[in-house]
Design a protein around this nucleic acid. Structure first.
Length: 520
RNA sequence: GGCCCCGUCGUCUAGCGGUCCAGGACUCCGGCCUUUCACGCCGGCAACACGGGUUCGAGUCCCGUCGGGGUCACCA
């Protein structure tokens, strides 16, 4: 049997982090078995702007390297892959269900149903519809319609027995048929509902394994009933635990951002992203630019493999120590059996750790290639950048080393690109290292004199120069170096002082010291 | 409330009856390195929800309790 899995996103305009994890597991399972991963668009509801809402989603999948074998833009033998274009399949299924007595036309109004539901709930009983408005004959249909009632199609669920399901993640799960409702599968206007559409499509597209989030577990009995009634083979099911909020067991939701922003770790990541976005001039709205949305990570310069690696370990593990997985390795060792049954909460800090590690391992040239576009978008370098600018940036990136954890962090070193007389100073650092340090100005002035009288240009020579100066003054290097850093970079912290000086060059260092001195 | 699922450090997890006074990773806290920051290195805090069984022996099996969550739509 060919393994075929699918992921069926709604065209909402963004890719949710939990959804991507589900998609990843589907992708891995299909690909590791030489099968196909299908993308199907769940657009039964929204007709408008599908194009615009779909683009970011497809883009996200490609960015993460989760290529689909069939679906939008790539086609496939079992298309169309948009549910809005599959109405005839659904209609045929409804007819078949009606013919076989597995479904019926029902003329109850929503209020009448709700009233029955309320009674059941009050009694602490599962709701079972009385079928009072079920049309048994054509005459019933005429009568109900004459009363002005609108008919829907309901499943005629079994009222006894049990369904035993063998879930690939959860094991044996049992449901009483009697507790199941007569779910609506078709509306009066002829449109169909989710439960019908998924079953019809999964069957038509020969999906062998339905790997989805656990909130669908309770949908499974009604879907199985449809499969059975239509005489279709039932696929294997695997229900994944959902992804929970940072520090809680609640399901992660894109609608609760206000609450997450108060959570320390989440806020830290979100703020960091915001900072980069501001520098890039990205206009963002909270819903679409947050650590819950995949696009966020691409924008701020995450490595897709880091995100994927983290997501893989969110609910799955190989053993007690392995954490780093290449794509090939995951394909080799992934298995549904090792998926955890309890929900896993999203931990921004751990994700950050994966990203930092991946960035550390990236060769310098690749970092440069990744970061130049950020400098361009922030308006710091021309497009295309002259060779000299690229090598200047390369020196900065090299010197910054693992202080740059994501590509967008390069913007923290914007001061290397600002004209010497326009440097802005960190106020606190300036006050502490220059204003409050009475000897700073004098030392800087003297060192400035020495600097302009020499021709040094490499880090080692700058170091010798400063150390010689320090010796001759009979001071500690700490007494000048902090002031020097603030004067030259505007900040109290940064990477190696001498490398910084070498990158800027003697003239610019001198000019910057001069500017700082004038501010005093 | 009905149904279903879940329950090991703050978080992600290892553990499939003895080798677990519970291991790894992230975070956090010390220390070292050091011109700052970061990296790195060393060390530390920290968990089997509870109660009954079964067993020579239980984090591991069974039952119950408690707790958490999902779902109960003419949404997906």
């Amino acid at each position: 049997m060919t393994i075929r899995t699918r992921f069926a996103p709604s065209p909402t305009g963004y890719l949710h982090i939990g959804g991507v994890r589900t998609a990843l597991f589907n992708w891995l399972y299909a690909r590791q078995h030489g099968g196909q991963f299908i993308l199907r668009i769940d657009d039964t509801d929204r007709e408008r702007n599908i194009e615009a809402a779909l683009t970011p989603i497809l883009h996200g999948f490609r960015w993460l390297g989760l290529e689909w074998d069939e679906g939008p833009e790539v086609g496939g033998r079992y298309g169309p892959y948009f549910q809005s274009q599959r109405a005839e399949w659904y209609q045929a299924a409804i007819e078949a269900l009606l013919d076989r007595g597995a479904a019926y036309r029902d003329y109850a109004s929503p209020d009448e149903i709700q009233a029955e539901r309320d009674v059941a709930r009050q009694d602490g009983q599962p709701f079972v519809y009385s079928r009072r408005f079920m049309a048994k004959t054509d005459a019933d249909v005429k009568r109900f319609e004459a009363e002005g009632r609108l008919g829907v199609i309901r499943l005629k669920m079994p009222r006894e027995g049990k369904l035993v399901l063998d879930d690939l993640v959860r094991g044996r799960v049992e449901f009483d048929w009697a507790a199941e409702q007569d779910h609506v599968i078709g509306r009066a206007d002829g449109s169909v509902l989710y439960n019908l559409a998924t079953v019809v499509d999964d069957h038509a597209m020969k999906i062998s394994h339905v790997i989805r989030a656990e909130e669908h577990l309770s949908n499974t009995p009604r879907q199985v009933f449809i499969y059975q009634s239509l005489g279709h083979d039932i696929p294997k099911f695997a229900h994944l635990p959902y992804v929970a909020e940072p520090g809680s067991k609640n399901k992660l939701s894109k609608r609760k951002l206000d609450i997450y922003r108060k959570q320390r770790d989440f806020a830290k990541l979100a703020d960091r992203g915001q900072r980069i976005a501001e520098r890039l001039g990205i206009s963002m709205n909270g819903e679409n630019f947050s650590p819950v949305i995949v696009d966020f990570y691409e924008q701020i310069g995450f490595l897709p493999e880091a995100l994927v690696n983290y997501l893989l370990l969110l609910g799955w593990s190989l053993d007690d120590k392995t954490e780093e997985f290449t794509r090939d390795r995951m394909l080799e060792v992934f298995s549904l059996e090792r998926i955890n049954r309890a929900p896993a909460s999203f931990d921004p800090q751990k994700l950050m750790a994966f990203q930092a590690r991946a960035m550390q391992q990236l060769p310098l040239e690749q970092k440069v290639a990744l970061m130049i576009p950020y400098l361009q978008r922030a308006g710091m370098v021309a497009d295309p950048p002259p060779d000299a600018v690229v090598s200047y940036a390369r020196q900065i990136i090299d010197a910054a080393g693992d202080r740059i954890e994501m590509a967008g962090d390069i913007l923290e070193y914007a001061d290397f690109f600002t004209p010497d007389d326009q440097l802005t100073y960190d106020e606190k650092a300036f006050a502490k290292r220059l204003h409050k340090n009475s000897e700073a100005a004098g030392l800087l002035y003297k060192f400035h004199q020495i600097l302009i009288a020499t021709e040094v240009c490499d880090a080692g020579s700058f170091e010798t120069l400063l150390k010689t100066f320090v010796d001759s003054e009979g001071i500690n290097i700490g007494q000048i170096i902090h002031a020097l850093r603030v004067a030259i970079t505007g900040k109290g912290v940064g990477f190696g002082m001498f490398e910084t000086m070498a990158i800027l060059g003697r003239d610019r260092c001198a000019a910057r010291i001069d500017c700082a001195l004038r501010k005093l």
